[in-house]
Design a protein around this nucleic acid. Structure first.
Length: 692
DNA sequence: GCACAATGTCATAAG
DNA sequence: CTCTTATGACATTGT
């Protein structure tokens, strides 16, 4: 599992990178340039895990930016462990035969590049031999973390990683003699491998140039491999991306009509970019063995690197410069690293190494300057928003062990600046649909108060590194809970770019904040996406999302609070957030229930009204029938009396007599006076019986 | 600026 | 006792 991190870190799918780092808890120091990928030579070096002498010009077959994130663990076909991956072929079967459980396709491809170019299939054994002999994936981490950490943290060191890591990797080389073959293969790859580049014409915009510059190598061989292998299996969206990438450039490592000189001339064609801030005198020259394996063009790569890194390009390169300035480590110190794999990784995530304050101060103006020069195209030049979302979701969906993260961050020195990454990621995602300026002051996104506006200004105006230092988030999660959460954009959106002097935001401060005239429009836009509690959580650097806090079971919640070092204010805020969040849900349910009750009552009322109308109609019909019966009875009554005669033969007056029907059916003519008296007696008797 | 609805928040009671 | 839920009352926000 840990094997993958350096690879992911190096692939250049920056958002994907970050998430993987967050999830896996490894290689956190790479966070610092998780925006756009480093220049191709640097990244190429990052990806070189086969040995210290890999020539920087050796082309690596990386997919286009964005493709990589889609061809990662979410797409097992791209992995060596996938038996159906057409990429594998005999070489990967050999690798699998070595017992390597997981081989990122990048690694495989990178190896394929060199071994194939050199016609050396044994390079695979040399490359993976040490890992496989170690019997666990962690061995791969070791080998990768030797090259990737230095290169991941410091592009300069990335350049010099062959030199710096020589001592460390001598062991690996000793353990795996064929590595030298791979190195030679890599050197020959630079010489022998010729790539066809349909270079874009002058109308290519700056974004494309950036992407070209930073991902040309990446997209070269692996793309040509993967495109053919994966297009058939890819989802539509991935196939589209691949098509787009192909439209941009056509690199085919099997083709033989492109020279590396052309390639690096392409890289250096960005004449507008210079690296004034960076003194490459600090960069150690590539070791002689590299030069031995390189032709003149290869060395040009090293020279052109200064042109490839721009000071006026985008935030990514600002961060890259940051990495340059801050991640340089003493090779001697590196050699003294604990050989245990995890500790090695942890040492790379040491915040003191990653973000030393002294270096940050030097980094600050540069970043500020670069951030101010950011354009929307720069920021978005190679990131498709949808891709980011997908990568984000997919990465979140990938299996990982949160305990690993916890273990990593429980390391005393493993302050990682993860939140920086997260902030980049999440902010990038959150603001991807916004205007260009919504990104470069990302540190303050979500703050709407004056206080927050000040934070924004601070973040933009040069306090960013400070924020970075504050951004450390001990992002451990209770296992078993993550899977059940619906991760929205706020998840891992731990963008805490507040200055340390920021007072605790009170409810009041957030109450009137929305009316602050200082608030920029984009802040308003972004604030709409954040609730007050989310902003509060950001302000207090709460390392959990509001959603997590609210939805987490009480046991997990309590254990989370106990297992994290949180201030009283943070704990109080977290509990308030949880209480408010639950009450909010309860209020919603209550209102919904109330509405349901109202609706049901209304329905009942309407039903009852309808029933009432029906009864009214029935009553009217009954009354009508009764009237008819009465009339008939009245007529019959008069008919009968008209035929009756008394003893003298006179007609009987119906007003004085009435007809009574006896029990035996006989009809009697009874005077009404008697009937009235009987009725009264009958009524009295009836009342008495009712009383009894 | 006002009205209104929707929503959030708080206090409180009950389970 | 703690936590959750329900709900009235009030505040805030959006239209």
């Amino acid at each position: 599992m840990k094997l993958l991190k350096p690879w992911w870190a190096a692939d250049g799918g920056l958002l994907h990178l970050t998430l993987l780092l967050s999830l896996a808890g490894l290689r956190v120091d790479l966070d610092l340039y998780l925006l756009p990928p480093p220049p191709a030579p640097l990244r190429d070096e990052l990806l070189w895990l086969g040995g210290p002498t890999r020539p920087a010009h050796a082309l690596s077959p990386f997919p286009a930016l964005g493709e990589w994130g889609r061809t990662g663990p979410q797409h097992p076909k791209g992995w060596a462990s996938d038996p159906g991956a057409p990429l594998e072929g005999q070489l990967l079967r050999e690798v699998r035969a070595l017992g390597v459980p997981f081989i990122p396709r990048t690694r495989v491809d990178a190896w394929l590049v060199h071994s194939v170019a050199a016609g050396d299939a044994d390079g695979a054994r040399g490359l993976f031999g040490a890992a496989s002999s170690a019997g666990e994936v962690g061995a791969n981490v070791d080998s990768s973390s030797q090259a990737a950490p230095g290169s991941g943290g410091d592009p300069r060191e990335a350049l010099s990683s062959p030199l710096a890591a020589t001592e460390e990797e001598e062991e690996a080389e000793a353990a795996a003699e064929p590595t030298a073959q791979v190195q030679d293969a890599g050197g020959r790859a630079g010489q022998d491998t010729e790539v066809v580049v349909n270079q874009q014409n002058e109308t290519v915009d700056r974004n494309s140039q950036h992407e070209e510059r930073v991902s040309t190598q990446k997209k070269s061989l692996q793309q040509s491999n993967e495109d053919d292998d994966k297009i058939a299996d890819k989802p539509d969206w991935e196939a589209e991306k691949t098509t787009e990438s192909r439209n941009e450039r056509h690199l085919n490592w099997t083709d033989t009509s492109f020279s590396l000189e052309d390639f690096f001339q392409l890289l250096s064609s960005q004449a507008e970019y210079s690296l004034e801030e960076i003194s490459f005198e600090d960069i150690p020259p590539l070791p002689g063995n590299i030069s031995d394996g390189m032709n003149s063009s290869a060395y040009d790569c090293n020279v052109n690197l200064s042109q490839a890194i721009s000071h006026d390009v985008n935030l990514h390169e600002a961060m890259l410069v940051c990495s340059n300035n801050t991640f340089r480590r003493n090779p001697v110190a590196r050699t003294s690293q604990v050989p245990e794999p995890f500790l090695q990784l942890s040492s790379h995530t040491n915040p003191e190494q990653a973000l030393p304050g002294s270096d940050l101060t030097g980094f600050l103006p540069l970043v500020d300057n670069q951030m101010r020069n950011v354009t929307s195209q720069d920021l978005l030049y190679d990131l498709d928003a949808n891709i980011l979302d997908e990568i984000n979701l997919m990465s979140l969906a990938t299996s990982f062990d949160p305990l690993d993260i916890s273990q990593l961050f429980e390391e005393p020195d493993s302050d990682s600046g993860l939140s920086l990454n997260s902030s980049h990621n999440s902010t990038y995602i959150t603001t991807k649909s916004n205007s260009s300026h919504s990104t470069y002051d990302e540190g303050a996104i979500g703050y709407s108060s004056d206080l927050e506006s000040q934070d924004l200004e601070g973040a933009v105006g040069g306090c960013y590194p400070e924020s970075i230092k504050l951004c450390h988030v001990d992002h451990r999660n209770d296992s078993g809970f993550h899977e059940n959460l619906e991760f929205q954009h706020i998840l891992h959106n731990h963008t805490y770019h507040l200055q340390p002097s920021v007072p605790e935001p009170s409810s009041e401060s957030f109450s009137w904040c929305g009316k602050s005239p200082k608030k920029s429009r984009h802040l308003e836009d972004t604030d709409r996406n954040l609730s007050r509690d989310e902003r509060r959580a950001k302000a207090l650097h709460i390392p959990f999302s509001v959603d997590e806090i609210v939805r987490m079971p009480v046991d997990s919640f309590n254990s989370m609070l106990s297992r994290h070092y949180l201030t009283d204010l943070q704990v109080s805020l977290i509990r308030d957030i949880r209480r408010r969040g639950k009450n909010k849900v309860a209020a919603q349910n209550c209102r919904k229930r109330k509405l349901d009750i109202i609706v049901n009552l209304e329905d009942d009322v309407s039903n009852l009204q309808a029933k009432k109308e029906t009864l009214k109609r029935e009553r009217a019909q009954c009354n009508k029938a009764i009237d008819i019966m009465k009339k008939k009875l009245h007529d019959l009554y008069h008919d009968v009396f008209s035929m009756l005669r008394d003893d003298q033969g006179r007609p009987v007056n119906p007003n004085q007599y009435t007809l009574q029907c006896s029990h035996d059916g006989a009809i009697l003519i009874v005077p009404k006076e008697l009937m009235s008296g009987h009725k009264k007696e009958a009524q009295k008797g009836k009342r008495k019986s009712e009383r009894h």
